[in-house]
Design a protein around this nucleic acid. Structure first.
Lengths: 111, 111
DNA sequence: TCGAAGTGCAACCTCAGAGTTGCACTCTGA
DNA sequence: TCAGAGTGCAACTCTGAGGTTGCACTTCGA
């Protein structure tokens, strides 16, 4: 999203990515320090494969970026992406308030 | 959420609510003008019952409020709730950036 | 060079939830 | 008072996401 869109299927996809508790937990831990899938799996109640799938989802929506060093792949969260999403949400909220106020005014004038 | 939390199961629940395309579409339409479940179903490719379930989910996380007038129930989005969520996201993004900068500094100093 | 650590891929299982149909109830207006 | 509009509740189907096990591949270090 980001732009005139402020909605649509793409938005729902990002929210769906953030909507899983395990995924959110992964993001929180990556926020403390970048880590590999194996390291994350060691401190979470799921297998490395499950963590890998979650990381793939998060990477697909741009919330996580990864870089390989040797046999290890380090993952870290992308703050700017989340910041952007937060701003979009506030914009949508603002437009809701504006429109609903207009609807209310029309209704009152109509009486 | 809203507060020192900025994460956790409650957060994931709100995102999960926003993560469904149909639900997002419902929110967008309610943002244009309050409407009943039947009215929404008439312009969406799902039945009234499906719309009703989505509205229940949205109401449960505080994104929609409803008021009955006669035999009709009007639903409208709660802008403040979304605004609050947007602010929380930006706070989390900021803390990520801070922590990752610290990690980077430590790594560079360690060399 | 060989074992261990880390990763990637694929098949499989399970269950929540998105959607449906069906019926009973309430309210409005003619 | 009666038909239609709007809603609520319950049972049911079915797809997809989250999770697992199993195996093959690469990379590092002793």
């Amino acid at each position: 999203m980001s732009g005139r869109d402020s909605g649509g299927a793409a938005t729902a996809t990002v929210f769906a990515a953030l909507g899983d508790p395990t995924r959110w937990e992964i993001l929180v831990r990556l926020g403390r320090a970048p880590a590999s899938a194996s390291a994350l799996a060691a401190e979470l109640p799921v297998t490395r494969q499950a963590v890998g799938k979650h990381l793939e989802v998060l990477r697909a929506v741009g919330l996580v970026e990864s870089s390989r060093s040797g046999r290890e792949v380090l993952h870290r969260p992308v703050g700017s992406r989340l910041d952007e999403l937060g701003r979009d949400l506030q914009r949508v909220a603002e437009s809701w308030d504006r429109r609903l106020a207009a609807v209310k005014e029309i209704a009152e004038r109509g009486d």
